[in-house]
């Protein structure tokens, strides 16, 4: 199954105007889909679709109040769509849409859609660093950072789900859709990547009671740690609420910074995630602060030493 990963995540929100402002300030570009729906896209065209929660164009809501309505997966080609349709039709209803995409529910009732990916190929450099002992990545006179660094989300990276039955979900996504488990946080759940994506994870499942089922967070890849810090600093200065970070995860090695949102999920900036192939053997560690990060920092106002002691020098 040549699945690449989420092209879009669709939400039905109760504060449409607040959500639109939030997504734009996060760094995503609005594309109006129709009179009542908007796609907020990253540089490669992946992103978040929002509508008011009463909009009849939305797939049905989960039993919980979670605002996630659908995960739209991008796949490599039409043959993959046909293969998924054949596999899923064995035991569930699959709807074929006019544009060739298919829709169905997974084993726990999450709404899924699969389409030939609409993501655009990006051609832009990663953050470049210089270090003794290694060839310089930046040319002489090429600056590492300026005040106007763009720091825009490049691509929808991953989605994290609260799931009441991990075993059923893992079986469905690995055996039926060809996902691979890359690592496991015992007590929480597994990280997974689809066959046509070498990122450490596009999905992470967290074991929860049924009344929590839904999306926990979603993340966008940035061009590097500096872009992540700059984007998070700007977002904080606009009044948005940091939840966790900045820091660097252990599993996946990605830098992270999470923020609260009016979509009822966290939005994460991430950067510099590990890549894996089928030779990788999944690790396992007990979930907790030690396994979750190499280090954790917290935002503060800009400050600099200077000015001398209050009241002037003594003596």
């Amino acid at each position: 199954m040549r699945i690449i990963g989420p092209d879009y995540l669709v939400f039905g929100v109760d504060d449409l105007e607040g959500s639109r402002t939030y997504l734009q300030d996060f760094g995503l570009k609005p594309v109006q889909l129709d009179a009542t729906g908007w796609l907020y896209e990253a540089l490669d065209g992946t992103g978040v679709v929002i509508r008011h929660r009463d909009d009849p164009k939305l797939p049905p809501a989960l039993q919980t109040k979670n605002m996630l309505r659908q995960q739209v997966f991008g796949v490599e080609d039409a043959a993959t769509i046909d293969a998924i349709e054949a596999e899923m039709s064995r035991d569930r209803r699959v709807t074929r849409l006019a544009d060739g995409a298919i829709e169905f529910q997974d084993v726990l009732g999450f709404e899924l859609r699969f389409q030939v990916t609409r993501r655009r190929t990006l051609n832009m450099p990663a953050e470049k660093i210089n270090a003794p002992g290694a060839p310089a990545q930046r040319a002489p006179n090429e600056l590492g950072v300026t005040d106007d660094v763009p720091a825009l989300p490049r691509s929808l990276s991953h989605v994290v789900l609260f799931v009441p039955d991990i075993d059923k979900m893992v079986e469905f996504y690995t055996r039926r859709l060809g996902f691979v488990i890359t690592d496991i946080l015992t007590g929480a759940g597994p990280f997974l990547r689809p066959a046509a994506n070498d990122d450490h994870h596009t999905h992470f499942f967290i074991r929860t009671p049924a009344y929590m089922q839904g999306c926990e967070h979603l993340a966008f890849h940035m061009g590097g740690p500096t872009e992540l810090m700059v984007a998070g600093d700007r977002f904080t200065r606009k009044g948005y609420q940091s939840f966790w970070g900045p820091g660097r995860h252990k599993f996946g090695s990605n830098w992270f910074w999470y923020f609260n949102s009016p979509l009822g999920v966290h939005f994460e900036y991430d950067a510099d995630m590990d890549k894996h192939d089928d030779a990788w053997v999944a690790r396992e560690a007990p979930n907790g602060p030690e396994a979750s990060q190499v280090f954790l920092l917290q935002w503060r106002e800009k400050w600099a030493p200077g000015g001398g002691p209050e009241g002037g020098a003594k003596g």
Partner: peptide, 11 residues
């Protein structure tokens, strides 16, 4: 709990 400064209520 807020998503933006003082944004504590639901929609």
């Amino acid at each position: 709990m807020a998503w933006r400064r003082d944004a504590y209520l639901n929609g």
